[in-house]
Design a protein around this nucleic acid. Structure first.
Lengths: 142, 142
DNA sequence: GTGGTTCCCATTGACGCCCATGGTGGCCCA
DNA sequence: TGGGCCACCATGGGCGTCAATGGGAACCAC
């Protein structure tokens, strides 16, 4: 099953690095993803990551709109201005830059959350809270 | 009849493993399920398990919504972020990870409860209590 | 140079794969 | 119908491998 599933919390070391859970790295490896597209999520206070094909998907959405529309411009502002490419080091860790820290409110620990075709970096407490809130507000599931 | 029925309580060993009742394993074998989809239940403090087709059913529900909506994102947070694939070892045991422990409040024993098309892992006392409460609060049955 | 990266290497604990044991129930056979 | 044998289930533990983490040293840019 080639999806990003589950969640796990890892520590950020003194150099600002954090290990991406091996489960997620395995998914990336299966898709032969070398460079990760990371963007500041549109809904949650979290940074999302996936292979470059997600960026291309976003760009196709913009391409199908009137290039002078406010909508298309706003979307570009988010997916381009709010996005960046990142690489993992030899041990499968990534640098937690201010781009990530500031947007997600992360300090010393990161919760990785699978989202199917991508995964997200959360501040641990924020993730807990949002997930339990979603569970309470559950509507039609099961 | 290919349903998960009855309940049983097994001990977690020193390495954090617990045997899945053979009755449940037999149901899984009949459906040729190799990998189990486990999710943190939406209603009870228990972890549910079933074959991958359940995840696909959940994903179809999400697929029918606007992918940028808060609703769809929250649902994904539960079924993807709150779900994981697990495998049994050669003896039909599964590792009781923190993913399971923390959510269900399990420490040293697990109650397996059949739920028809899936089964659940409960903290024994919590299961007892919830079941007896359900018995009392039963309204429209019979 | 100085600070920030990147590339290695080391450590420790967790996990996966095997094999072993005890206890119970079922089944066969006399 | 009683006894005994056998199969299976729950459980325990050894050991090799890998993941997560820590830290040194080379490297690059300003």
């Amino acid at each position: 099953m080639n999806r990003f599933l589950s969640h796990a919390t890892n520590r950020i070391d003194a150099k600002g690095r954090v290990s991406v859970p091996s489960m997620f790295r395995a998914v990336l490896a299966r898709s032969a993803v070398e460079e990760l597209y990371a963007w500041q999520d549109f809904v949650f206070p979290a940074v999302s990551m996936a292979g470059p094909e997600v960026l291309e998907r976003f760009e196709r959405m913009i391409g199908s709109q009137d290039p002078f529309s406010t909508e298309a411009n706003k979307m570009s502002l988010l997916i381009h201005g709010g996005g960046v490419f990142m690489k993992l080091d030899g041990e499968g860790r990534l640098l937690v830059t201010d781009f990530i820290r500031d947007f997600a409110g992360i300090t010393d620990r990161v919760t990785f959350a699978g989202r199917g075709d991508h995964f997200q970096l959360w501040e641990p407490a924020a993730f807990e809270e949002m997930q339990s809130r979603a569970r309470k507000e559950r509507t039609a599931i099961s």
